[in-house]
Amino acid sequence: NRRVIAMPSVRKYAREKGVDIRLVQGTGKNGRVLKEDIDAWLAG
């Protein structure tokens, strides 16, 4: 149960899109989840 590193704005964006942020692979520094990662996850 790893802790997800993401800015609050990215967490909010994921919530609005209905994405469980824990399932998204972060590509930022130290595995940080970026807004682009959410978009990529939604695109498949």
Rank of each mutant, 00 (worst) to 15 (best):
L23C: 05
G26L: 02
E36Y: 14
T27I: 03
L42C: 04
K35A: 08
K35W: 05
Q25P: 14
K17Q: 14
K17M: 14
D39C: 05
R15Q: 08
A14T: 02
E36H: 14
K35M: 10
G28Q: 03
V4N: 04
G28T: 02
L34N: 10
W41E: 05
G18R: 12
V24E: 00
V4Y: 04
D39A: 06
G44D: 14
A40V: 12
K12S: 06
E36N: 14
T27W: 04
N1D: 15
W41P: 01
R3D: 15
I5M: 05
K35D: 05
G44S: 13
V19Q: 02
E36F: 13
K17A: 10
S9W: 12
M7A: 15
W41D: 03
I21R: 01
M7V: 08
V4T: 04
R11D: 02
N30C: 07
R2E: 15
G44K: 13
E36R: 15
N30E: 10
A14N: 00
G31A: 10
L23A: 11
N30M: 13
A40S: 12
R3K: 15
V10P: 01
I38E: 00
R2Y: 04
R3S: 08
K17S: 11
T27Y: 04
R15G: 07
L34P: 00
D37T: 01
G44M: 14
R15C: 04
N1H: 13
M7W: 15
G18L: 11
I5W: 05
I5E: 07
R2D: 15
A40E: 11
V4E: 04
V19G: 01
V33I: 14
V24G: 01
L23V: 13
T27Q: 07
L42N: 06
N30G: 14
V19R: 00
I38P: 00
I5S: 06
T27K: 07
R15P: 00
Q25G: 12
V33E: 00
A40D: 11
E36K: 15
L42K: 07
G18Q: 11
A6E: 02
R15H: 09
K12C: 04
D39K: 09
N1F: 04
V19F: 03
V10I: 06
R11F: 06
R11L: 05
I38M: 02
A14F: 01
W41A: 08
V24Q: 02
L34M: 12
R3A: 13
I21W: 06
V10S: 03
D37W: 00
S9R: 14
L42M: 12
D20S: 07
Q25K: 12
A6D: 02
S9N: 10
D39R: 08
L34G: 08
N1P: 13
R32S: 09
Q25T: 14
T27G: 08
G31Q: 10
I38R: 00
V19W: 00
K35E: 07
G28F: 03
E16W: 09
D37G: 01
P8A: 14
D39I: 11
K17C: 04
K17V: 13
K29W: 09
I21G: 01
D20N: 12
G28I: 03
N1V: 10
R32K: 08
R22D: 07
I21A: 03
D37M: 01
A40N: 12
A6P: 02
G44A: 13
R32L: 08
K29Q: 10
S9E: 11
P8G: 07
R32N: 06
W41S: 06
L23H: 10
R22I: 09
A14L: 01
A43R: 14
G18S: 11
K17P: 00
G18K: 13
A6R: 02
N1L: 04
M7Y: 15
P8K: 15
A14E: 00
K29M: 10
V10C: 07
K17F: 09
N1Y: 04
E36S: 15
D39E: 10
R2C: 15
G28D: 04
A40T: 14
D20H: 07
A6N: 02
D37I: 00
A14R: 00
E16P: 01
I5R: 07
R32H: 08
Q25L: 14
G26P: 11
P8N: 08
I5F: 05
R22T: 11
N30A: 12
A6S: 04
V24W: 02
T27N: 09
R11P: 01
V33S: 01
W41M: 07
L34K: 11
A43L: 12
L42Y: 09
L23K: 14
L42E: 08
I5V: 12
K12E: 05
G31H: 11
G28R: 03
N1T: 10
S9L: 11
K29D: 09
K12Y: 07
